[in-house]
């Protein structure tokens, strides 16, 4: 029985590795902060880049990261037109806290709620924070796990790189 399962695993790996790897955002239903169902296939920004940041109200480095970016967001938007989706994975214990939490801090991100971690799982995220950068064609070009102060500078460099591929 176990040997069969291993065979199955290898078969599966063979199939999937025979295909080209692209990098698109998976289509998963999450909720907006206004209660509407939102399919992540609709994460678009008129051909400009997108950042997806997985966070939770109880995750200190996540809050640190989003607080650091909030001071820079206006400039980032002016230069690159980027739109940030902050996806909260708070479960039923804390999901009602998300909106007051965001408002008190004055965050201007697009907030999405993923209380049963469906999008988190679909994007293969382990521990949070975890940040994805998506270029204007909808391809994931960079991702980063964890946060240390200053990581936002690396993210911004990558962001500049994806609107103008000549800049490294």
């Amino acid at each position: 029985m176990k040997a069969k399962k291993i065979t199955l695993l290898f078969l599966f790996i063979c199939i999937v590795f025979s295909v080209n790897a692209q990098n698109k955002i998976p289509a998963v239903n999450v909720k907006t902060i206004d209660g509407a169902t939102f399919n992540t296939a609709n994460m678009v920004n008129d051909g400009k880049p997108i950042i997806i940041d997985f966070w939770a109200t109880w995750c200190k480095p996540c809050v640190q990261e989003l607080s650091a970016i909030t001071d820079l967001y206006e400039d980032w938007q002016k230069v690159t037109g980027v739109k940030i989706y902050a996806v909260s994975i708070d479960d039923a214990r804390n999901s009602a806290r998300v909106k007051p939490f965001v408002n008190t801090r004055g965050w201007e991100y697009e907030i999405l709620l993923d209380p049963n971690a469906d999008l988190k799982r679909a994007m293969n995220v382990g521990d949070i924070p975890h940040t994805f950068l998506i270029n204007g064609k909808g391809e994931i070009v960079f991702q980063h796990a964890g946060y240390a102060p200053g990581d936002e500078n690396e993210l911004y460099e990558k962001l500049l790189g994806c609107i103008n591929p000549d800049v490294k």
Binding site: A96, R97, K99, P100, F101, N103, T104, G106
Partner: peptide, 15 residues
């Protein structure tokens, strides 16, 4: 039951 009120810079919640 949960209720909250929030504006920029202020929030109040109860559950």
């Amino acid at each position: 039951v949960s209720a909250n009120y929030s504006v920029k810079g202020f929030s109040l919640s109860a559950s």
